[in-house]
């Protein structure tokens, strides 16, 4: 080793010494001075997880509510809002759980809160009950007619548009505007209670549309086709969408 250094010119030795000193300093600092929690990823990860887990919760969860409240959950259980968590409307309530007497959760009473879900919007899945707030009893608070814990129309809907507003709207502008829904669909009474499980019918025969649209039909001013040759193996609505203007 000594020989090697002797062979090197003095400036090279100087450089090597500088680098060695630097390396030793870095090594000592890293190895002995820096505390482990600054350089051990595993430790840091554990403490980060702990901090994340210890964060305060704001929403207590529906199961907390039923510990004290039994009337509302009982009503809610069988209604349309049965899957709706209490805090979806009443807001974050962990503070109320911690301190039930002093902190009260909110209780939205205005029309615009219900509108978040029930205002008509064509992007919403069809069948979801929607209204136009400007037309549907304007200015009247929703809760004066509907109990939010068991929302039901005060009277059975006269037409289907309570839930099928999108179709209703499209149809109103189409040639079929004057044909009521029940001409083509038979809706079992149960559909109003269990809309997803009991589903209304659709015309299952070509002849149904043929009553007006067949060449042989006595109807005047209606576009007609020769039912015998036109798209024979399909039911009409498999190609034509009867609710829009002119169909597609």
């Amino acid at each position: 080793m000594k020989d090697f250094f002797k062979k090197l010119p003095e400036q090279a030795v100087r450089v090597v010494v500088v680098f060695l000193v630097l390396a030793v300093v870095v090594f000592v600092i890293r190895q002995f001075i820096i505390p482990p929690e600054m350089k051990e990823p595993a430790l840091q990860r554990a403490s980060s997880e702990e901090r994340e887990a210890a964060k305060e919760i704001h929403y207590a969860g529906a199961q907390s509510c039923v510990q004290c409240h039994d009337k509302e959950p009982e009503i809610k259980k069988s209604g349309y809002h049965r899957d709706l968590a209490c805090e979806s409307c009443h807001g974050a309530a962990q503070k109320h759980v911690d301190n039930p007497t002093d902190v009260k959760p909110t209780s939205p009473k205005k029309r615009d809160y219900c509108a978040y879900c029930h205002k008509y919007n064509f992007s919403r899945p069809t069948g979801f009950p929607q209204i136009n707030p400007d037309m549907h009893n304007p200015r009247k608070p929703c809760i004066s007619c509907h109990n939010p814990h068991n929302p039901k129309p005060p009277t059975t809907p006269r037409s289907c548009n309570a839930c099928h507003a999108q179709i209703e709207r499209a149809k109103a502008a189409s040639y079929h505007a004057l044909i009521t829904c029940t001409v083509c669909h038979t809706a079992p009474e149960k559909h109003k209670i269990s809309p997803r499980t009991v589903i209304p019918t659709k015309p299952d025969k070509r002849e149904f549309c043929g009553k007006c649209h067949d060449k042989a039909s006595p109807r005047k001013g209606v576009p007609t086709v020769d039912m015998a040759t036109h798209g024979e193996k399909y039911v009409c609505w498999q190609c034509h969408y009867p609710h829009t203007l002119g169909g597609i």
Binding site: E52, A53, K55, I57, H58, Y59, G61, E87
Partner: peptide, 15 residues
């Protein structure tokens, strides 16, 4: 995550 460790659902799922 702070809800999961307490056995609660993520809040978006909850509401």
């Amino acid at each position: 995550y702070h809800r999961l460790v307490r056995g609660l659902l993520p809040v978006c799922v909850e509401v």
